[in-house]
Amino acid sequence: MVLALPETFGHDLLRGVGAILLYGVVGLLLMFIGFYAIDWTTPGKLSQLVHRGLPNAVIVTSSALLSMAFIVVVAIFNSASDLTEGLITALVYGLLGIIVQVLAVRLLEWATRIDVGRTMEAERFQPVSVVVAAAHLALGLVVAVAIS
């Protein structure tokens, strides 16, 4: 049995590896932007609250990051088949998704009158943090599906 590879195998393999690396960079960039957008719009410095081990900050931040990941993954998945166009559409859809996500969560928090700042800085678990986390995840899924 002889294993025969297509003539373009090497080129296709390198192109695929390059695409993975480039989409990885775009995805990481969007995750950073998403984290800092949440940090900027949420009372308290998230990274410090998380490092202090405050349970509500950990729950809300984790759910926000998962929410951003949903948006980024769907933006990349639905990007154009051409690599350059795909990177641009993934970046634009991802940025728009992050903006919509942050605004939607803040609006929901305002509508429910949740004091997110006090919740995030609480030393003990506050059940309302699960509501904020659920809002992040739910709205992240809605935005992600809207991208597709």
Rank of each mutant, 00 (worst) to 15 (best):
T112I: 15
L21H: 03
M68N: 10
A69F: 13
I88K: 09
V128K: 13
V132K: 05
G94L: 08
V2A: 13
V25C: 12
E109I: 15
L29F: 07
G86F: 09
I38E: 08
V74L: 07
G10A: 02
V105E: 04
H136G: 04
Y36Q: 10
S47A: 15
A75G: 03
L87S: 02
A146T: 03
Q101F: 12
L14W: 06
S81H: 01
S62M: 10
M120Q: 11
L5W: 03
H136F: 15
R124K: 14
A37N: 01
A57Y: 08
G27F: 08
S62Q: 02
L29E: 03
A37R: 02
Y23L: 00
D12V: 03
L95Y: 01
L108P: 08
A135M: 15
H51G: 06
L49A: 06
M1H: 13
G140T: 05
T112M: 15
A75E: 00
N78A: 09
L83V: 13
N78C: 07
V130K: 11
I99T: 07
L103Y: 00
V130A: 15
S47Q: 12
R124V: 12
M120F: 07
V132A: 15
L107D: 05
W110M: 10
V116M: 06
W110K: 11
A90Q: 12
A4S: 09
V130P: 10
L65I: 08
F35P: 06
W40V: 10
A122S: 14
L46D: 11
L46F: 06
V60A: 11
N56F: 11
L87R: 00
A135R: 05
A135H: 04
A133L: 02
D82T: 14
R118T: 13
L141D: 11
L22M: 14
P55Q: 13
L29V: 01
G10I: 10
A69C: 01
R52K: 14
I59G: 04
Y36R: 04
P6E: 10
E121Q: 11
R15W: 14
A134M: 09
W40Q: 08
L139E: 00
A4W: 02
L5I: 06
T42E: 03
I38D: 09
T119I: 15
H11C: 00
K45C: 05
I88P: 02
A133N: 10
G44V: 12
L83R: 06
L66F: 08
L14R: 01
R118I: 02
P127G: 00
G18T: 07
L137Y: 02
F77D: 10
A135V: 11
V50E: 07
D115L: 02
L108F: 14
L87C: 01
I33Y: 06
Y23V: 02
F70R: 14
L13C: 03
G10E: 04
T112A: 15
Q126I: 05
D12M: 07
F77L: 07
L108K: 13
A64M: 00
L65M: 12
L103W: 03
L66C: 09
V60K: 13
T119V: 15
